[in-house]
């Protein structure tokens, strides 16, 4: 099991610079969530393709909070543990919309280039 998961981790995609913020915002649109929850949500929704180093999540959360795109307060998790819950602010929603459009255009552009090279 452990060796299996290690191999898995090596095969997983490292996150591109700057995409973590987008993923966090996208995850939070489903409702407020704590850090560990966000990490797993990203991993699961991407069919375990993306590797999120949990530690890297927190500076990102901190940054987003400072920019006013997410807000945070301490709460209690489903299994009764104390945890800090993050939720999207209205500014965050706008940012998400903008970033999503940008990302789609970017991905499409990269895709076209790679396809033309392939043919």
């Amino acid at each position: 099991m452990s060796t299996q998961s290690k191999n898995d981790e090596q095969e997983r995609l490292k996150l591109l610079q700057g995409t973590l913020d987008l993923l966090i915002l996208r995850t939070l649109i489903l409702g407020s969530q704590h850090g560990q929850g966000i990490a797993h949500a990203i991993q699961q929704t991407s069919d375990e393709e993306l590797l999120v180093e949990h530690g890297a999540l927190y500076p990102a959360l901190q940054r987003l909070e400072e920019r006013g795109w997410i807000s945070a307060k301490w709460g209690v998790s489903t299994n009764n543990r104390k945890a800090r819950f993050y939720s999207l602010t209205s500014a965050g929603r706008k940012q998400l919309a903008a970033e999503t459009t940008k990302w789609n255009r970017f991905a499409a552009a990269i895709g076209r280039i790679l396809e033309s090279e392939g043919s």
Partner: peptide, 22 residues
Amino acid sequence: RKRNSADFAAEIQAHIQLEEDR
């Protein structure tokens, strides 16, 4: 100072606790 370091450390501890639980 928006958050003190202790608060941040508590959050990380909470994260690890949750992960352990899982």
